[in-house]
Design a protein around this nucleic acid. Sequence first.
RNA 1: CGCGGGGUAGAGCAGUCCGGUAGCUCGUCGGGCUCAUAACCCGGAGGUCAUGAGGUUCAAAUCCCAUCCCCGCAA
Length: 310
Amino acid sequence: MKVIFLGTPDFSVNILESIVKSHHEVVAVVTQPDKINKRGNKTVFSKIKETALKLNLPLLQYENISKEGFDELKDLNADIMVTAAYGQILKQNILDVCPKGIINVHASLLPKYRGSSPVQWALINGETDVGVTIMQTELGVDTGDIILQKSITLDGNENTVETLEKLSLLGAELILEALDLIESGTANYIPQNENEATKCKMLTKQDGKIDWTKKSLDIKNFVRGMTPWPGAFTTCKFGVLKILKVGLNNVEKCGKPGEILVAHPKKGLTISCKEGCLDLLVVQGENSKAMDINSYLLGKRLTVGEILGE
RNA sequence: CGCGGGGUAGAGCAGUCCGGUAGCUCGUCGGGCUCAUAACCCGGAGGUCAUGAGGUUCAAAUCCCAUCCCCGCAA
């Protein structure tokens, strides 16, 4: 089939490459406009744009695909469109561009975790199974009929990037299956159970603040989900402290929420939570790179008894 | 021209404002001590202080100029 692919971040890349390698033909790639003014004035291409350039695929970028894209897309005479984390909500005219419609690769086990950051929320909520769903795209966000779905089990330590990488590979397999089913006319379209549907809230920077009055496992999962964006953080006497990785510490002794129980370049940094304790493993101070806790403590001497997050 | 922080030993930092012998913690190597330790003691090696045969100066890690790279915020 002739496929128009719409995607933007890392998650989309494996999926695009998978389709390119298959017997289906990618007739165009659509991605978000270049971001200008990243840090020092440089424009930044999306991962999918880089991939499309590398593979010499025709590339289209729209500020607003629903307003600008219809004619150009229609002229491609594609059979189907595939979206994977494209980043724009499609209006009905775009949904009608191709005879076989448009399908979406969503990184959750729909109907749970509809919306924009499904993996983050799944990790924050401590889900042990996550997955990918291929579904028909319709006007509602992630509400369309399900074509294929597959789950994987996590070991409980992955953060968002690591999970997305796994799901991206899973999605790359599933999309080919789905395309083949559709091509042969044997795809089953299963409506979602609305009673089980959940929608995720968009994350913001402020959501990353760690609440030390939670249980240690909940905070660990919170850090996993928030890493690397928007990032989990707390504060210490040196200012904002980003926390990228933590480990559970099963000592029985506990202090006040946020209290530093151990702070030593060789013993690490142990923080008390409401229940249980956490060892901070990878942190990032202000204006500094992420580093393991031992290195951090060599330069920044935190003291036992200090309360983080105040 | 978006705003700001930074580049000093293998690692993390101080020193820069106010120029004057390159410092701290850790690691590493050698030795010692202890029933014992992520412990302690003694000693050593390891630096073109990001780059520029740049500028100022008797003298530059430090002041001035230019470039490269990294990070945070904002998107």
